[in-house]
């Protein structure tokens, strides 16, 4: 189990996370919803040390790491338990699709080269991009780049994969294929924390939905609880607005 406890984060005077705690069971898919600026990205970045939290801990089993005072060694160890799929893909521009996956295994995890090669090819095949393995990111569509990003994370077999709005930078027609791949990651039983604005996808894939607003967890529960019987007023309003927008788009 992964236990995130009492995470706080301020940027100067602006308090962005005000005591966020979250439990994630093994194999669970947790989807975080919330309006823009509610601190979703910041939470993912704090538990991966891309941002230094002002307070809080993350525990993998009984390995508790202080998010504020972690040493370089703690950070490396924690990051090697995690995978991250970025909104803007962040593929290594100077590496081919294959090398993007391979490099993580070899330089990030010290997997022997032969094994790394097999794993990287397998992961690319799994996201349906084996025929693009020698393409550089600049030669791939956004959807393909994000699938490489997902392959890069999955190949490392981390204990949890963090997704930060993995489809929101994509052209609408490429969102579907990418969400399909993420659903397959979930089906593999990989533990995931997903920040998204795709409601039907969230409903589909989530074991647990966490609604954040103003730097706090307002409400959490099963997709059914949250989407059909939200308890909190803020959750209701948020859903009404999002689903309202959705209707409007049709």
């Amino acid at each position: 189990m992964i236990a995130i406890r009492n995470v706080k984060k301020s940027f100067g005077k602006l308090s962005v996370l005000q005591d966020v705690s979250l439990d994630i069971k093994e194999g669970e898919v947790v989807v975080i919803l919330g309006p823009s600026g509610s601190g979703k990205t910041t939470l993912l970045r704090c538990i991966s040390f891309l941002e230094r939290a002002s307070a809080g801990t993350i525990a993998f089993g009984d390995d508790v790491v202080d998010l504020k005072h972690a040493s370089k060694k703690d950070i490396l160890r924690t990051r090697r338990r995690e995978g991250f799929v970025f909104q803007s893909y962040n593929l290594f521009a100077n590496k081919t699709a294959f090398e993007n996956v391979y490099e993580g295994l070899v330089s990030g995890r010290k997997v022997p080269k032969k094994e790394a090669k097999e794993k990287a090819l397998e992961a690319l095949d799994w996201v349906g991009l084996l025929d693009r393995k020698d393409y550089y990111p600049a030669q791939l569509s956004g959807g393909q780049q994000q699938r490489v990003g997902i392959a890069r994370a999955v190949a490392l077999e981390p204990e949890v994969i963090l997704f930060d709005e993995p489809t929101s930078a994509l052209d609408p027609e490429l969102v579907g294929e990418t969400l399909e791949v993420i659903k397959r990651v979930a089906k593999r039983g990989i533990t995931m924390i997903v920040v998204t604005h795709e409601m039907s996808f969230a409903q589909d894939v989530a074991d647990k939905i966490v609604f954040m607003d103003g730097g706090v967890v307002v409400e959490e529960g099963s997709p059914n609880d949250i989407f059909t019987h939200p308890k909190e007023e803020r959750t209701k309003q948020f859903l009404k607005r999002i689903i309202g927008e959705f209707v409007y788009e049709i």
């Binding site: 990051r79 090697r80 970025f86 962040n90 593929l91 290594f92 521009a93 990030g108 994370a153």
Partner: peptide, 23 residues
């Protein structure tokens, strides 16, 4: 060089020097 790539390098488990030399 885009900072996002450095973050990605960290998140695949590279140390700062390795990320610098490789990416």
């Amino acid at each position: 060089v885009d900072k996002g790539q450095l973050e990605a390098a960290y998140m695949v488990g590279m140390t700062a020097p390795v990320a610098f030399w490789r990416i």
